[in-house]
Design a protein around this nucleic acid. Structure first.
Length: 509
RNA sequence: GCCCGGUUCGUCUAUCGGCUAGGACAGCCCCCUUUCACGGGGCAAAGACGGGUUCGAUUCCCGUACCGGGUACCA
């Protein structure tokens, strides 16, 4: 291929939330574009007016923004190749379809949906459960190949609804090179006469994708593996339209599969198995059905993107944690795996945990703060919050985990799990804490290390093992058996709160 | 059915003919920590099957099996 400016596109149909596989396709497009100094385009493929879903396009834009995969050109970002919605490009497609008819590469078909259905029933056999509108069958259908020219013209003049179908040649071998799979071949006799222009005047995907990729000067076309079977149609269209030289290079990405059983991952699997499939929350405007997304589950976009990149790609080393910048630098389509990958939510969580650990507390702060506020944790002081985050983040896998791990820093725990200490509670311990209160009321220092030293010295003086006292102390401050080191907690919540919590619990015992 | 694609530990994967088949997640055990984690150490776990080609195949070729995708006036 001649070297030309790299221009790639993500071309979703706005029919609902953006699924994992979709975001991964975006990611690979984005990485490839950035790596080669090219452009990343978002094009909305809304040629099926029956499937239009309110809000879906905004959702796609929001998802890309959240992931940090912002397009250079899109319906909202504009660009030199606007418009970027196929519905707004409608007028462009018909002329090409008509041209194909004129050149003998396509034809008019007047079959009604009922007639098509009847054809499928009529020709259906055990060996051929789904008959196609192909080189053989088309001879028996109502189209400009079988009907006299005058009749066709009369139908056309009368404004009869028709579609334009591609005329697949007989027994030709079509070969192209897929960047991931290498050479792939098809025999045209196995491919049916796909509809190019629908009865409502809108193009099908097949026509639209070729026309738009050509007009938008797309250099590389990446899409899911489910498109591989229709590649010969696209190949032929590029050829018939006379644009063969400008055809993009193709890469068909492997599918993301269900964790259990078989088949490609669907939203239903997430509902069934309890993990997100969409990037962000999505509410179906018609059914009001709500689906949770990775963002709302508490994933960091960095982790989400990192996880997706590793689903089918690796750099050949053992490295698994990559920032977006590193991915841009190291990504190559040739290293994308051919086989589908079963989605593993546990591994996805691991990525998030790793990213929470490696992200500095101050950068985590906004996300953590909103998670805490959403759960009625009264955070006011960002300085304190930042310290807390630094202390607890290694024990948080998802953002909401910060709620349990840090709520007690900001308010006295409501439930004190005294059952954890009561069985082994005695007067000696009671006395120890009474003395501890007195000692700490007077102590001039209030740092974790000093507190721990005093605590242990006092324990020794009372002939008690520090270990026996640590859990009770933790329960007093935290309310339960969790959280970071107790003396760190005491340092942060301060003398007043520490002593108040000890006293409070002592009264319960 | 037909067409296309795929096939390494339970899962994600490394290996571009030399392998005692490596890593990660999950699992199990130990240490650390008298919370829970983090961290450290260890165990267990794989080349679908059958033929070739080759001194040598996980790697190349063929067949079979299995899995996936497609087979719409949906993308």
């Amino acid at each position: 291929m001649t070297k030309r400016k790299v221009r790639v596109r993500f071309a979703p149909s706005p029919t609902g939330g953006l699924h994992l596989g979709g975001v991964r396709t975006v990611l690979f497009n984005y990485l490839f574009a950035r790596k080669h100094g090219g452009d990343f385009i978002l094009r909305i493929e809304d040629t099926d007016q029956n499937r239009f879903v309110e809000g879906a396009e905004d959702y796609i834009q929001d998802t890309l923004a959240w992931c940090g995969l912002v397009p250079d050109e899109s319906p909202v970002h504009g660009g030199a190749f606007a418009p970027y919605r196929q519905s707004e490009r409608k007028e462009r497609y018909r002329a090409y379809a008509e041209q194909l008819v004129k050149d003998g590469y396509a034809y008019y078909a007047f079959d009604t949906p009922e007639e098509l259905e009847q054809m499928r029933i009529q020709f259906k056999t055990a060996e051929n459960p789904s008959p196609q509108y192909n080189q053989v069958i088309r001879e028996q259908m109502r189209n400009s190949l079988t009907m006299p020219e005058a009749e066709v013209q009369a139908l056309l003049d009368a404004g009869t609804t028709y579609v334009i179908r591609i005329k697949m040649p007989k027994d030709e071998t079509l070969t192209f090179t897929d960047m991931i799979r290498g050479e792939v071949s098809f025999n045209t006799s196995q491919v049916d006469d796909k509809v190019l222009l629908k009865g409502d005047g809108m193009p099908t995907y097949h026509l639209a994708v070729v026309v738009d990729d050509y007009q938008m000067e797309i250099s590389h076309a990446f899409r899911g593996e489910e498109w591989l079977p229709s590649a010969p149609v696209h190949l032929l269209l590029w050829k018939y339209l006379g644009w063969e030289e400008a055809m993009p290079e193709w890469a068909h990405l492997p599918l993301i599969l269900k964790p259990d059983g078989n088949g490609k991952l669907s939203k239903r699997d997430g509902d069934r198995l309890g993990f997100p499939v969409f990037a962000m929350d999505w509410t179906d405007p018609k059914t009001a059905e709500k689906t949770t997304g990775f963002r709302e589950r508490g994933f960091l976009p960095e982790a989400f993107v990192n996880m997706l990149a590793m689903l089918g790609w690796n750099d050949g080393t053992d490295q698994e944690l990559f920032s977006l910048e590193e991915l841009v630098e190291k990504f190559s389509m040739e290293r994308v795996h051919k086989g589908g990958a079963k989605f593993d939510y546990e591994k996805a969580k691991w990525f998030n945990h790793e990213w929470i650990k490696k992200t500095p507390a101050d950068q985590l702060l906004p996300a953590v703060k909103s998670a805490l506020l959403a759960n009625a944790v009264p955070v006011t002081d960002d300085i304190v919050l930042e310290k807390v985050i630094g202390l607890v983040k290694e024990r948080c896998t998802l953002l909401p985990d910060f709620v349990q791990q840090s709520a007690f820093f900001f308010s006295q725990p409501e439930n004190i799990e005294i059952s954890a200490i009561q069985p082994k509670w005695d007067d000696k311990k009671n006395l120890f804490f009474a003395e501890l209160i007195r000692a700490w009321e007077l102590s001039t220092l209030w740092e974790a290390s000093d507190l721990e030293k005093e605590f242990k010295e006092l324990a020794a003086a009372n002939q008690l093992k520090p270990g026996e006292l640590m859990l009770p102390f933790r329960i007093m401050l935290v309310g339960g058996k969790y959280g970071p080191g107790v003396f760190d907690i005491a340092e942060i919540i301060g003398r007043e709160a520490t002593l108040a919590r000890i006293k409070h619990t002592l009264q319960l015992l």
